[in-house]
C-alpha cells in the first residue's frame, strides 16, 4: 500500500474504533464521570452482575435468538430448496420479491406493520395486551428468513443437480436423498444463514421495540431503557463485554473459514478411503 493509503486507512480505523475504545476505558473508571478518568476499578462490572434485570434481559435475548435462528434456518432452507425447483417464472418472481420486502423495508415499517396486525388480531380475541414473547419470536423469524434463503439459494444453484437424482436412483427416498446428498453440499450456506439469523436477532432493537409489549425485555431494549435515564458506566461495562464477545466470535469464525472446512473434509475422505482400501 502507498503511504497516503495507509494514513487514510488508519484514520478511518481511528474513526471506527475511537468511540468503542472510549467506552471500554470508561467502563473501568473509578468514578461515575463519563469524561474524567480518575482511576482503575472493576466497580461497574460488579454493579452490572448485580443488576437482575439486565441479566434476565441477556437470558431473554439468547433464548429468543436461538429459537429464531433455528426455526428460520429450518424453514428458510426448505424454502430455498422449493424456490430453487420452481420452474414457473412468474411464481419465482413473486417469491423473490416477497422475500426481498423485509430486507428493503426500513425496520421501523416492518416493526409497525407487524405490531398493527398483532394488535388488531389480539383485539379480535379480546386480549388486552397481545404483544409478548410469541409475537416477538414471529417478528424475529420473519426478518431472519430472507437472509437464510439468500445464503442457501446460491449453494443450491452451484450444486450438481444430478446428485440427488443419483441418490434416488440408487433407492433413497427424496427425504433421505436430501439429507445424504443435498444437505452436505449446501451446509456452508446453511451455517452462514444460521449465524446471520442469530446475530441479526441478537442485535435487533427497532423491530423488537414495536413487537415486544411490556413484559419481555431483550438486551437492546434494556439498553434503550437504560439510556433513557442518566447512564452510569454500568452500561459501558455491558458494552465492553459485548465488544469482547463479538471480537472473539469474529476471530474464531475467521480462523474457521470455509477453505479450512473443505480442507479438513477432504482429508477426512482420504483417510476414510485409505481405511476402506485396507479392509
Amino acid at each position: 500500500m502507498k503511504r497516503a493509503s495507509k494514513i487514510y486507512t488508519a484514520l478511518m480505523m481511528i474513526f471506527l474504533f475511537a468511540p468503542i475504545a472510549i467506552l471500554v476505558v470508561f467502563s473501568f473508571n473509578d468514578a461515575k464521570s463519563l469524561s474524567v478518568f480518575s482511576g482503575f476499578s472493576l466497580h461497574w462490572y460488579r454493579e452490572l452482575f448485580r443488576d437482575a434485570e439486565t441479566l434476565k434481559a441477556v437470558r431473554n435475548t439468547l433464548v429468543l435468538a436461538v429459537s429464531a435462528a433455528l426455526i428460520s434456518t429450518a424453514m428458510g432452507t426448505a424454502a430455498a430448496v422449493g424456490i430453487n425447483r420452481l420452474r414457473n417464472k412468474v411464481l419465482r418472481q413473486v417469491m423473490d420479491s416477497v422475500t426481498n420486502i423485509p430486507m428493503i423495508n426500513p425496520d421501523i415499517i416492518t416493526g409497525i406493520s407487524l405490531m398493527l396486525m398483532f394488535v388488531f388480531v389480539g383485539r379480535l380475541f379480546g386480549a388486552a395486551t397481545s404483544l409478548n414473547f410469541g409475537t416477538m419470536l414471529i417478528a424475529h423469524i420473519t426478518f431472519c428468513l430472507p437472509y437464510v434463503i439468500l445464503q442457501v439459494l446460491p449453494k443450491l444453484q452451484q450444486m450438481d443437480k444430478s446428485l440427488p437424482e443419483a441418490a434416488m436412483d440408487l433407492g433413497c427416498t427424496p427425504f433421505r436423498a436430501f439429507l445424504k446428498a443435498v444437505l452436505p453440499e449446501i451446509m456452508p450456506g446453511v451455517i452462514t444463514g444460521l449465524i446471520m439469523a442469530f446475530t441479526l436477532s441478537l442485535d435487533d432493537f427497532v423491530i423488537s421495540y414495536f413487537t415486544s409489549g411490556n413484559g419481555f425485555q431483550t438486551l437492546p431494549i434494556r439498553i434503550y431503557n437504560m439510556t433513557k435515564k442518566t447512564v452510569t458506566p454500568k452500561m459501558y461495562a455491558l458494552a465492553t463485554i459485548i465488544f469482547f464477545v463479538i471480537l472473539t466470535l469474529l476471530l474464531v469464525s475467521n480462523l474457521y473459514d470455509e477453505d479450512e472446512v473443505q480442507r479438513r473434509r477432504a482429508a477426512r475422505q482420504i483417510r476414510k478411503a485409505s481405511k476402506e482400501e485396507k479392509t
Binding site: 468503542i20 434503550y224 447512564v231
Partner: peptide, 18 residues
C-alpha cells in the same frame, strides 16, 4: 465488521459521551 456487530444504541451513546 466489528462495530457493525455492536448494537447501534451503544454506538450512538458513545458519541453522546464524546
Amino acid at each position: 465488521m466489528i462495530p457493525m456487530w455492536m448494537n447501534f444504541l451503544i454506538r450512538t451513546y458513545a458519541w453522546m459521551t464524546i
